[in-house]
């Protein structure tokens, strides 16, 4: 597998024009994502986190500014077959079984794989996500959390070079979330993958990331870019360390400040 891509975001702005008004979702956002790094984005609802991920995946065009992907301007041609995207909603195909839903990404982005290889890979991921035995079920037969896990399996199964995850663990129970956090970190450590991870949970961001981007409320701006220095593997014990708690409370403080000027 080729090296993980680096991403460079420069003066990115996005506005949505509706019938009655123009909403500025992102305002002059700039930051770099190092190749193979794990970066989290935290910020209040509606600050443009989802919009930013859609730009990075190439499905949405910025109003102004540039995004460099591997040093070249981002385009769908450039990112084709490299982006594993976990949307905020599970977005499963209701007419496909769990297994067939996971195989979708490989059908589209890994045409070289045989059907048997795709199926084996899909089954392997479903097992990791604790969904063994649910392969032949349809999405409406699964709980919301299970659907989201299928969606995560689908994104991981084709081994993308970059993973964009939009609050992927928000709907999961504590235990499942921790299992999947560990699996994600394991996968990230073993493969060359750049991860951009959106979360509402400050401890989750601190536990997982190498860098955290804190964003302000609408219009979304970058408040602070925070490196997370703790050594890995990070365990339960890491969560209790004073530095961990101090960093988490610093981020909480940033998000409490409504006015970006005073932050």
């Amino acid at each position: 597998m080729s090296k993980a891509p680096g991403i460079s975001i420069k003066n990115l702005s996005v506005s949505f024009r509706t019938k009655t008004s123009t909403v500025t979702a992102l305002d002059d956002v700039s930051f770099d994502i190092a190749p193979g790094s794990f970066l989290s984005i935290v910020g209040p609802s509606g600050c443009g986190k989802t919009t930013l991920l859609k730009i990075l995946s190439g499905v949405l065009q910025p109003t102004s500014g540039t995004v460099l992907f591997d040093g070249e301007p981002l385009s769908r041609l450039k990112t084709q077959g490299q982006v594993g995207y976990v949307f905020q909603r599970p977005l499963l195909l209701p007419w496909r079984t769990t297994l067939d839903n996971v195989m979708l990404t490989m059908e589209v982005a890994r045409r070289g794989m045989s059907r048997a290889e795709r199926e084996a890979e899909a089954r392997r991921w479903l097992k990791i996500a604790g969904l063994q035995g649910f392969e032949e079920r349809f999405p409406h037969e699964l709980s919301g959390g299970m659907q989201q896990r299928v969606s995560i399996c689908r994104a991981l199964a084709f081994q993308p070079r970059i993973l964009l995850m939009d609050e992927p663990f928000a709907a999961l129970d504590e235990i499942t979330r921790e299992t999947l956090q560990e699996e994600l970190l394991l996968l990230w450590a073993q493969t060359e993958t750049t991860v951009v991870f959106i979360t509402h949970s400050i401890p989750e961001a601190v536990l997982l990331s190498e860098q955290i981007v804190v964003m302000s409320a609408r219009p979304g701006r970058v408040l602070e870019r925070i490196p997370v220095p703790f050594e890995r593997p990070r365990t339960e014990e890491t969560r209790e360390r004073p530095e961990f708690l101090a960093l988490a409370s610093h981020i909480r403080g940033l998000l409490r400040h409504r006015d970006p000027v005073t932050a």
Binding site: G58, T79, G81, V83, Y85, R89, L91, V108
Partner: peptide
Amino acid sequence: DKELLQYMDSLGASGWEKFTKISLP
């Protein structure tokens, strides 16, 4: 669902793939 089509876009799906795998079903 517009986001389903965006999902296919993120994978680099062709128009034909979006039609046969998403819109038609």
